[in-house]
Simulated scan of single mutants.
Amino acid sequence: MASFILIASRRITLGILSSLLNVLTNLGVVVWDLGLTLFNLLAPLRPANCVVPEGHPGAGGRWPEYIAPKEGDSRSACPALNAMANHGILPRSGRNISFREMNTAIRSTYNYSPTFCFFVPNYMAGLLGKSYWNDTLDLEDISVHNGIEHDASLTREDTYIEPDQGKPCERLITELLASGTGPGGDITPADLSRAQGKRRVEAMKTNGQFTLSTFHKLFGSTNASNLLATFDGKVDDLRPFLLEERIPEGWQSRIRYSKGLTITSFQSTILRVELGIAEK
């Protein structure tokens, strides 16, 4: 009995320490992110043709060869991660990727801030019960339902209909690309709001196990807002990126901030998209 009590006590203590560490880590990320946001306000923008640092894949718009995934390769519900694997920026197999490696690759490829690039893989690690500092993942691991993957995606059928979330849905993507009302048919924040509202209504009707919490609604708007932040809604670039998960030759991220797009500065775009959604 005493041994059982001791083990239980140790587990409770470890749980409390782990929760405290997570709180302190997130607080540190918030403070760090605010500092980077202020720095970006004062620092010059990166040149449009030099967003990717020299020495990294994609510098000068020169991307490694695109190879579509082969049987046995691992892919996720995230086009951005899949595209990096398809170009060999992440392992082409999509397997045994360290969270720290993912952090570095996202930052150099898309110019998201160090805080953003730490927070997302660290969140993934916690979701999967793994260590950000020591463990690895396969891309398909992050498609666990209602973790990062969620119903009513703009690029994937719900898992209720298509369990393999590594596959882009041509029907949904084609509809999205055709919905742009910006110059040249480019996608605007209002277009994304309308597309998401329509998609949520459709998913509720066709998915017998539909769920979409407030958290995942915001997560969906975050994913959609990436199309604006990283691609400026340009359909000519989004078409190969979403349908083939291929980075267009010569392309570089539209994010030109010196320290990348911070979590703080991204919130205005996310909220604009989410608050514009009418689910009817």
Rank of each mutant, 00 (worst) to 15 (best):
Met84Tyr: 00
Pro163Trp: 03
Leu154Glu: 01
Leu172Thr: 02
Gln165Gly: 08
Arg95Asn: 10
Ser93Val: 03
Asn103Pro: 04
Asn134Gly: 05
Thr109Lys: 03
Val120Ile: 15
Gly94Cys: 08
Ser93Glu: 07
Glu175Arg: 11
Ser113Pro: 12
Met102Gln: 06
Leu127Ile: 15
Trp133Arg: 10
Ser113Thr: 05
Asp151Tyr: 03
Arg92Ile: 00
Ala83Thr: 09
Glu101Gly: 09
Ile142Pro: 10
Thr104Trp: 01
Pro163Ile: 03
Thr109Val: 05
Asn96Leu: 03
Phe99Thr: 01
Cys169Tyr: 06
Trp133Ala: 03
Tyr123Pro: 01
Tyr110His: 05
Arg171Gln: 09
Pro121Ala: 07
Thr159Ser: 13
Leu137Asn: 12
Pro163Asn: 04
Tyr110Gln: 10
Thr174Leu: 12
Tyr160Cys: 14
Ile173Asn: 11
Pro121Cys: 12
Ile148Asp: 07
Asn96Phe: 00
Ser98Trp: 02
Gly166Pro: 04
Pro168Trp: 10
Leu154Ser: 01
Leu81Ser: 14
Ser143Arg: 13
Thr109Ser: 07
Gly166Ile: 08
Ile161Val: 14
Asn146Cys: 07
Tyr112Thr: 06
Lys130Gln: 08
Tyr123Asp: 11
Thr115Ser: 15
Tyr160Glu: 08
Leu90Ser: 10
Gly94Pro: 10
Gly147Ile: 01
Gln165Arg: 15
Asn122Leu: 13
Gly88Thr: 12
Pro121His: 04
Leu154Val: 02
Leu128Met: 01
Met102Asn: 00
Ile142Met: 10
Ile161Asp: 08
Tyr123Arg: 14
Asn134Ile: 08
Gly166Gln: 06
Asn134Arg: 15
Thr109Asn: 02
Phe116Tyr: 10
Thr115Cys: 14
Phe119Cys: 09
Asn86Pro: 09
His87Val: 01
Asp135His: 01
Glu140Tyr: 08
Thr115Asn: 11
Met124Ser: 10
Glu140Val: 12
Tyr132Ala: 02
Pro121Glu: 05
Leu172His: 06
Ala152Glu: 05
Leu139Val: 03
Pro91Thr: 05
Gly94Asp: 06
Glu101Thr: 14
Phe99Asp: 12
Asn122Val: 00
Ile97Phe: 01
Glu157Ala: 13
Ala85Trp: 07
Ala83Leu: 05
Phe116Ile: 11
Ala152Tyr: 00
Ile89Ala: 00
Ser131Gly: 06
Lys167Ala: 04
Asn134Leu: 14
Glu170Gly: 14
Tyr160Gly: 06
Pro121Tyr: 02
Leu139Lys: 13
Arg95Lys: 15
Ser108Met: 09
Asn103Leu: 14
Arg171Lys: 11
Pro168Tyr: 09
Arg100Cys: 08
Leu154Tyr: 01
Arg156Leu: 01
Asn103Gly: 12
Cys117Arg: 07
Arg107Ile: 03
Ala152Lys: 09
Thr104Ser: 11
Met124Ala: 11
Asn122Gln: 15
Tyr110Phe: 08
Ser113Cys: 08
Glu157His: 05
Asp141Ser: 09
Gly129Met: 00
